[in-house]
Design a binder for these strands. Sequence first.
DNA 1: CAAGCTCTTTTTGTATGCAAAATGATGCAT
DNA 2: ATGCATCATTTTGCATACAAAAAGAGCTTG
Lengths: 227, 227
Amino acid sequence: MNDIALSPRLLHEDATERLRDMIVQGELAPGAKLVERVLCERLGVSRTPLREAIKRLASEGLVALQPNRGAIVTPLTLATVRETFEVMGALEALAGQLACRNITAAQLAEIRALHFDMLACHARGDLAGYFRCNQAIHLAIVAASGNATLAATYRTLNAQVRRARYLANLSRGRWDQAVAEHEEILAALAARDGARLQRLLSGHLGAKMTAVLAAVDTGGANDGAYD
Amino acid sequence: MNDIALSPRLLHEDATERLRDMIVQGELAPGAKLVERVLCERLGVSRTPLREAIKRLASEGLVALQPNRGAIVTPLTLATVRETFEVMGALEALAGQLACRNITAAQLAEIRALHFDMLACHARGDLAGYFRCNQAIHLAIVAASGNATLAATYRTLNAQVRRARYLANLSRGRWDQAVAEHEEILAALAARDGARLQRLLSGHLGAKMTAVLAAVDTGGANDGAYD
DNA sequence: CAAGCTCTTTTTGTATGCAAAATGATGCAT
DNA sequence: ATGCATCATTTTGCATACAAAAAGAGCTTG
């Protein structure tokens, strides 16, 4: 009858997700050593699934393996953040172009709804909520491209950028600017203007990168990851 | 004295590489089931490092995990091949743009040398050699971008495309065309004409995709993966 | 003969044990 | 004290043992 089998959660998958979250949220700081015994206790699994999780995260670039010396959380350098933004910019530009061809009315409506949610958060000064909406919009555009490989690649790189969020905050000026950029992005998408959307997304990502780099560089109170 | 320690090869890294090669070269066909005991014998390792290797390849997209039912080699569908080409096209375009800014004289000289090697293979009708040179050129351009994240992402996706090589061959007409395109690419790179290089690489990848898709679709004797 | 049931075998997922490498502590000589 | 050799401890890497799930064989029943 009930074929909606709750997928039998495997320990190593669970461990992978939780460990990834711990890294993205900065609970495990960049450069921190991953001591197997400690993480086993914290996650309540044995070393075998934990080690499998670590190997997966290594392939995602969140963890660096050190032969015979375990693993560390990948350090977040200015160079890698800039590199990641460059690649994500190209991917989002492509996604925008494809989305203009492939997006459905329902998908566009959902993005528009998320856009207004985002405006509401901005008006209230709710930065955390704004961040969630913003992420959802970008992921929705990427999903609307209809290219699953693109979406998967984007998500993997995005994890790297999200880590920066916990190192810096967002200036009011940059925040306002980001919202204005989103207005234009939505308009271009609704008009199915692929070339324009591509330019806007590229510029948007570039500005975001500049903000994040400046924030990270000054060890400062700025977080471009919100826009 | 001798600190040049020959890196102590770890079994799981070795297993990862060999398993990846087996998949890329089609020794393990798309959709094939990965039976742990069999692979352990073939690779001469126990299940622990083998399973770690499988997890890594899962994150690279070469393997699909099936909870409680092991893993299979990711099927190669037309859709995923097309998707992968689309993403790689965007990445190469970005790489070309960056390479025009960052490439060193030595790097350019090496690419030029590879280009002539490639012409030699083409003249001799040495398809395998041509393929090697061609891959080396594209990887060198990506490397010359100076963006390591871009290079790593590119390599991961490239593994997917290389699998198609073992499903199809390359027509003479397409081969000649590809060589002509490479002439233009080299010229644009030497002239540091980023915009033009971007267009050329995009078009080149697009043509390659068309060739591969046609070849794969007809189950045919065509292999765009060579160009 | 098809469909379903039970029992066996195989395969996967996880925990644990053991050996090698790395880390840290102790003592010694300078 | 400082540098360094030696030894104990810890940690990693790998193999294996055990349990649960899936796959398969053979029987039964409609």
